[in-house]
Each structure stands twice: as C-alpha cells, then as structure tokens.
C-alpha cells in the first residue's frame, strides 16, 4: 500500500503541472513546437495517469463517458464551425482573414480557435479510448 500512496501523492502533485503543460503546449504552439494535437495527447495522458492510479471509477466520476463523447463532437464542431464562420463572413471556407478586421489578427484568432478544437477532440478521444480498453478488462 505504501508505494501506492507515494504514487497517489505524486500523481496528485503532478496532475496540475501536466495539465498546465498541456495548456502551455496548446497555446504556445504558435511560437514553439506544439499545438492542439500534442496538447490533447498530453492532456489525455494526464487523465490516463490519474485513472491508472486512482482507478477507472474515480476518473469516471470526474469525466463521464457521455461528456467525453460530447467532447469528440464539440472539438470537431469548433473546427468546422470556424470554417463556416469564415464562410458566413464572406470569405472562403476556413478563411481566417475575415474573422477580424485585421487579416493577421484574424489568422491568429482562427489558428487559436481551431487548435483548441483539435485539442478538445484529441484529448477526449484519447481518454475515452483508454476508458473502453480499461473498462473492458473487468
């Protein structure tokens, strides 16, 4: 039980940092390496770690599989929705220039938004894949 305790505490301490790092990767992707996909993976990995240590049920308490499933969809919808927004604002599909009065700002905004969408989908898919593989063993 002792090593498990250590693990639990370490995990608890690590969790915020992992998630923070994920967020950093998410939003810093413009300047350094990283982006929505990597962030999503790390984010997901954090939760998977949590699930491994605290058990699947604890994780289910935090994030139910329904929420995750909604996550798949919302991420994709954000991405595709940005495209539609471009369409509605008079540009081509996925044209970010029109999102803001200044094309460069528009681009930046668009990239941030879609990276966020990517992150959401990837993280929720990763976590739920873990759910299903782990949940099946029992």
């Amino acid at each position: 039980m002792n090593d498990l305790l250590v693990l639990r505490i370490v995990t608890k301490i690590l969790m915020p940092f992992i998630l923070l790092f994920a967020l950093y990767v998410q939003f810093h992707g413009d300047y350094g390496p990283g982006g929505g996909f990597q962030a999503g993976v790390i984010f997901g990995a954090g939760f998977i770690l949590y699930g491994l240590v605290y058990g699947l049920d604890a994780l289910r308490g935090v994030l139910s599989s329904d929420v995750l499933r909604a996550g798949f969809a919302i991420g994709l919808l954000i991405f595709a929705g940005v495209g539609v927004a471009g369409l509605l604002l008079g540009g081509n599909y996925l044209d970010y220039n029109v999102l803001s009065s200044d094309p460069v700002k528009g681009q930046h905004l668009g990239i941030l938004l879609i990276e966020f969408g990517v992150g959401v989908t990837v993280a929720s898919v990763m976590i739920s894949i873990f759910y299903y593989f782990a949940g099946r063993g029992r």
Partner: peptide
C-alpha cells in the same frame, strides 16, 4: 466546400 462540409458537420451533430 459545402459538398463536404455539410455531412462533416452533421456527423458530430449526431453524437
């Protein structure tokens, strides 16, 4: 664009 996007949007909406 619409040709592909319509169904692409509908898929997550189904979920």
């Amino acid at each position: 664009a619409l040709q592909v996007v319509i169904t692409l949007l509908a898929a997550p909406a189904c979920i």
